[in-house]
Design a protein around this nucleic acid. Structure first.
Length: 272
DNA sequence: CCATATGTTACTCG
DNA sequence: ACGAGTAACATATG
C-alpha cells in the first residue's frame, strides 16, 4: 500500500516501538524470495531507523544495513514471541525480552536487502518531496526537460521519491493539472503549484496516519494493526463517477502507465 | 469467472 | 541512449 505517508507512519511507529536497542536473538524466514543473508543480523541490534523514499532503512550494529520495501502488501506487525506465526507472515524477527516483529506480505512483492553499502540501492533515488532542500526551482528543472506525462513522471522514483498512485492523483487534482500533460509543457507557476500540492497531500496523509483502502488483510495497517484515516478525505483517487468537490463535474477515470487514474475533466484541463 | 489492486523491474520495439 | 508500452511477480477482494 505504502507510499511516502504510509512508510513514514510505519517508520515513526517503529522508532517508538520496543525493538530499538534490543538484541535480535533469532530470525525465521518462510518465503524463498527473502535473502537468507538477513540471518547475519542475528545477535545484532537496531541503532537507528529512517525512511528514504518508500524504503525503510534499519541501521544495525556492525554497520550492517537492512533495506525493506513494502511494495504492494507488505506490513510490519508487533507481536509477542509466544504468539504463533500467522498466515502470510514471511519473516519473524525475535528480539530479547519476548518482543517479536513480523513481516506480513500476502502478495510477496516486498523486498529485503542486507548490505554494508546501502548507497548502491539508495543512490538511484530522486529527491525527497518534503525536504526543504528541494527548491521549487530544482523541482521545475526535473520536469522541464522531459516529454512524458506528468503523472508518469510523478511515479518515477528516480526523478522524485515517495509518490504513488493515490497521492499522484490527489496532488494533480489539488494543483488543477491534467495527468497526461507533458512535463515540459508546465509553466514555472504550474510546477510550483504542483510542488505545493504534493506537499499538502503528503503532509495530510502523514497527519492522518496513511491511507488504508478496502477492508481486507492486504490493506495498509501500522505496527499495531491500526488502519490510517486518509481514505476518508480523498478528493479524486478511486472516485470516478462522483462529483468534483470544487465544480461538481463528474470525475473521470482513464488508464495511464497501466494505472487507474482519476481526475476532474473540468478543473484539470489539458491546455490552460 | 473477470477485473482490479497502494509498486517496481525487465524486456521489447522504435 | 531514451521513451513508450507491455508483461510479470502472487494473492485477495468485489
Amino acid at each position: 500500500m505504502p507510499e511516502l505517508p504510509e512508510v513514514e507512519a510505519v517508520v515513526r511507529a517503529l522508532k517508538m516501538s520496543p525493538i530499538l536497542g534490543k538484541t535480535l536473538s533469532s530470525i525465521q524466514i518462510s518465503c524463498p524470495k527473502i535473502p537468507s543473508e538477513i540471518k547475519t543480523l542475528t545477535s545484532q541490534s537496531i541503532q537507528h531507523i529512517e525512511r528514504r523514499g518508500k524504503y525503510i532503512h534499519f541501521h544495525f550494529t556492525q554497520k550492517i544495513h537492512l533495506l525493506v520495501h513494502l511494495r504492494m502488501t507488505g506490513k510490519f506487525l508487533l507481536k509477542k514471541s509466544t504468539e504463533a506465526p500467522a498466515k502470510h507472515e514471511r519473516v519473524l524477527f525475535y528480539f530479547s525480552e519476548g518482543v517479536c516483529l513480523a513481516f506480513h506480505d500476502a502478495r510477496r512483492f516486498g523486498t529485503f536487502a542486507v548490505t554494508l553499502d546501502p548507497s548502491q540501492f539508495l543512490s538511484k533515488l530522486g529527491p525527497e518531496p518534503l525536504e526543504s532542500s528541494l527548491s521549487p526551482e530544482r523541482f521545475f528543472q526535473i520536469f522541464s526537460s522531459r516529454k512524458k506525462a506528468i503523472k508518469a513522471a510523478l511515479l518515477d522514483q528516480t526523478l522524485l521519491v515517495g509518490v504513488g498512485n493515490i497521492y499522484a492523483d490527489e496532488a494533480l487534482w489539488e494543483a488543477k493539472l491534467h495527468p497526461e500533460r507533458p512535463c515540459c509543457e508546465l509553466s514555472k507557476q504550474e510546477s510550483f503549484a504542483l510542488l505545493k500540492a504534493l506537499r499538502t497531500v503528503l503532509d495530510k496523509g502523514i497527519a492522518q496516519g496513511g491511507t488504508s483502502l478496502g477492508t481486507g488483510a492486504p490493506n495498509f495497517q501500522n505496527l499495531n494493526g491500526q488502519s490510517g484515516k486518509n481514505q476518508q478525505t480523498l478528493n479524486v483517487y478511486g472516485k470516478q463517477g462522483a462529483s468534483c468537490l470544487r465544480c461538481g463535474t463528474l470525475l473521470k477515470r482513464i488508464t495511464l502507465v497501466q494505472r487507474g487514474t482519476c481526475f476532474c475533466p473540468f478543473c484539470q484541463k489539458k491546455d490552460s
